[in-house]
Design a protein around this nucleic acid. Structure first.
Lengths: 259, 259
DNA sequence: GACTACAATATTGTCAACAATCAGGTGCAG
DNA sequence: CTGCACCTGATTGTTGACAATATTGTAGTC
């Protein structure tokens, strides 16, 4: 049911890897192409490789992924539904540049959603589920220890989505997935300084509380954890104006060319 | 180059109260066509005019709405993202037939989301907002009194979405909107008997509790209200199997032709 | 020198024809 | 009568060409 599985090994966007047009004679060749391209772009967002404001040109994407422009068009349409890009008629689609207000809404919603998930987790998770999540947290901490920040960030994200999956409510899992996917764009647009996006691993503690079936503590820890994340961003109402051009370009060349 | 500040985004557009497409931008004729057709179909779902399982053929829709097949295709793609239709490759798209499990997930999620919205409503709503909502409830009760069930149902739905809008969190509002839009399909697929879908108007009481800034009572009432709604459906785990064809067809001819 | 009008280019949006695939029916053989 | 191969009509999927639009560059004028 859930169309997004972050299980897929991060093959990134391998531009020409699509050149291997493995014609599966099973019908609908391009229909899973849409899936593939969508996942690639979603992964790029999650890894913070797509700077807000960047224009995504149809032909360039089509060439890069070795697909038709129609496929790209469909992917962009889906990305727009998830607010990952914004579409300006007759001008093109641009990587979304979420406002501070949108960032605040996102985090506020996230607190509620994560609290709900934790609440269900306490009453539903089996020991096997918890063990699996513990292993995930361990890998995350190892990645931090190894200094592999990108991998650690990704595993940190995976913890939240996997926890949601484990709870078994597809709707809440999908909502959290959407929030989590949109968050990196908020981070890029409103990071306070050169803060690491996710440092301390509160995840282990949260898991402990869930294992101990301590609802209130688990919820409190999770809400605090989300608060930590938000605290590294500048989302205050009167804060710095969203800038229009220069700041965005400054942010742009700080990241290597994504495509 | 290219200043694009996308602050205001339009996503699921609110309840779509009619065809108020006053702004007529020169370009992009068909792009708001997509919007229009999407809203029409979404309204059809909200009014329970689309029986789960019905096939939506591209050419038929194109003819019915007087648009290109490409437009229809884009609309169907968006509907699929919202789980309002299900797409079977090389076969077509069909009005979604949510399983009982999906229905349960939907209602469980809804309880959390509505509770969150109520919680924010208590601390954020101004008197003017509450007055506006009271007027809405009044119209709803009047519709019931007039025996206009369809209108009453629609106003009842509007109460929830408008309350979410008033709270001002775009993310939570969008989530509730998605839930509310998917619910009618669950109702059609799993209605217990010939139950009216929404009878008693707890809405007034909920509003009173919000106006009195009584968070706990407001939340409790809202959760109870959602529980009432769910109670009219047969979503129990071991309940009647989701059937595959016959029940779907039975549900089909019970409703007049949707297009 | 700055501003406007205009041409050139690049990009998006639209459309219809073509190909691939599936559902249903027909006829033949057993 | 039943089962299987095949044919036929209908529907979806794909592609490329064409039109509409915005952006950039250039020249001309005040």
């Amino acid at each position: 049911m859930s169309e997004n599985k972050n299980e897929t090994a991060d093959r990134s966007e391998g531009p020409a890897s699509g050149a291997s047009q493995a014609r599966r004679r099973a019908g609908s060749q391009a229909i899973d192409e849409v899936q593939r391209v969508f996942e690639s772009l979603r992964n790029a967002v999650l890894d913070q490789r797509l700077p807000p404001g960047l224009q995504l040109k149809e032909q360039a994407l089509a060439d890069a992924f070795g697909v038709n422009r129609a496929v790209v068009r469909q992917v962009l349409s889906r990305l727009e539904v998830f607010r990952l890009v914004s579409h300006e008629p007759n001008r093109g689609v641009f990587v979304a540049h979420p406002s501070a207000a949108e960032g605040r809404d996102l985090f506020t919603a996230r607190r509620f959603i994560e609290a709900a998930i934790v609440e269900l987790a306490v009453e539903r998770l089996r020991d096997a589920d918890i063990e699996r999540l513990r292993a995930l947290v361990k890998r995350e901490q190892q990645a931090y220890a190894d200094g592999d920040l990108r991998k650690a960030l990704r595993l940190s994200i995976d913890f939240h989505t996997k926890l949601a999956d484990a709870v078994g409510n597809t709707v809440l899992a999908a909502f959290l997935d959407e929030i989590v996917t949109r968050t990196p764009l908020v981070v890029l647009a409103h990071r306070k300084a050169s803060q690491p996006t996710c440092a301390l691993s509160d995840h282990a503690q949260i898991l402990d509380a869930i294992a101990a079936r301590d609802v209130e503590r688990a919820k409190a820890l999770m809400i605090e954890h989300v608060g930590h994340l938000q605290g590294r961003l500048a989302l205050d109402p009167g804060a710095k104006r969203s800038d229009s051009n220069i700041a965005r370009l400054l942010g742009l060349d700080a990241v290597d060319n994504p495509i």
